[in-house]
Design a protein around this nucleic acid. Structure first.
Length: 238
DNA sequence: ACATTAATTATGT
DNA sequence: ACATAATTAATGT
């Protein structure tokens, strides 16, 4: 509410910001221009809530840089991370699934910047822009699919397989190739991993220590590198 | 098979 | 120096 009127003379956003991103890739320059002119851009520090579960979904967002964790808070106050969203994807699109409040909280995992639009523009985006609807519903479908498989994992697999799977997904979606392995591209703690897998940070710590001795992973504080993805695949399939 | 508790050590500002 | 992160062992369900 109080951060909007500080943007009178925006350093005019460049059109190339959006031209490559799937939801907008089919649009011409003029369309992108009007979309950008309606957008608000904002920078977020790491660990900040972009929006919170249950609040009025007054805006929807396009993450331009950084990573965001979609988090749900249980009645007992624990956090459960539903999924991670990398730069270049939409978030807060409650309107797309017919809601007027956000179903979860979006926390920045890194310093991030995002564009946002008032939710009342959503319908005009869907109707007026070719490819916007199909692409967003595709990523939406992908997300529920992922959450679905995670639910199955939580119900059927045991802890070691779950964190192995979580690590594999993380390096697939947000992995960065580095010497001798793939590293997760944002700071992640054992606590974070435990929230992803519904276990404790202690168990995660033990597992990682064990894997580290076997040369499967390597980790410093807030950094995890997977050296032998295949070994994790084996573990995850026991 | 895993959580909880607690004590200890390491690491980043 | 201080807070936050990670490890480790012991005990509990």
């Amino acid at each position: 509410m109080d951060d909007l009127h500080s943007r009178k003379t925006l350093p005019r956003l460049d059109e190339s910001l959006l031209t490559h991103l799937p939801p907008f890739s089919k649009l011409d320059k003029r369309q992108i221009r009007t979309i950008l002119d309606q957008a608000t851009s904002r920078r977020y520090d790491a660990g900040i809530a972009i929006f919170e579960e249950g609040h009025d979904a007054d805006r929807f967002y396009m993450l331009l840089d950084g990573y965001v964790r979609v988090v749900r808070i249980t009645p007992t106050g624990e956090q459960v991370t539903a999924l991670h969203i990398p730069a270049g994807q939409l978030l807060g699109i409650a309107r797309a699934i017919g809601r007027d409040t956000y179903p979860a909280t979006a926390m920045t995992a890194t310093e991030s910047i995002a564009l946002s639009w008032p939710t009342r523009l959503w319908d005009s985006f869907v109707q007026g822009y070719d490819g916007f609807a199909t692409v967003t519903y595709k990523t939406l479908g992908h997300r529920v699919g992922e959450m679905n498989t995670r639910i199955v994992e939580l119900a059927t697999q045991q802890v070691e397989q779950r964190v192995a799977n979580a690590l594999l997904r993380l390096i697939n979606q947000t992995g960065r190739k580095v010497e001798g392995g793939i590293e997760i591209d944002f700071p992640i703690t054992r606590q974070d991993l435990s929230e992803l897998t519904a276990t404790t940070l202690h168990t995660v710590s033990r597992l990682l220590s064990g894997w580290e001795k076997q040369g499967i992973v390597e980790s410093k504080r807030k950094r995890i590198k997977v050296c032998d993805p295949h070994a994790l695949v084996i573990i995850s399939q026991v």
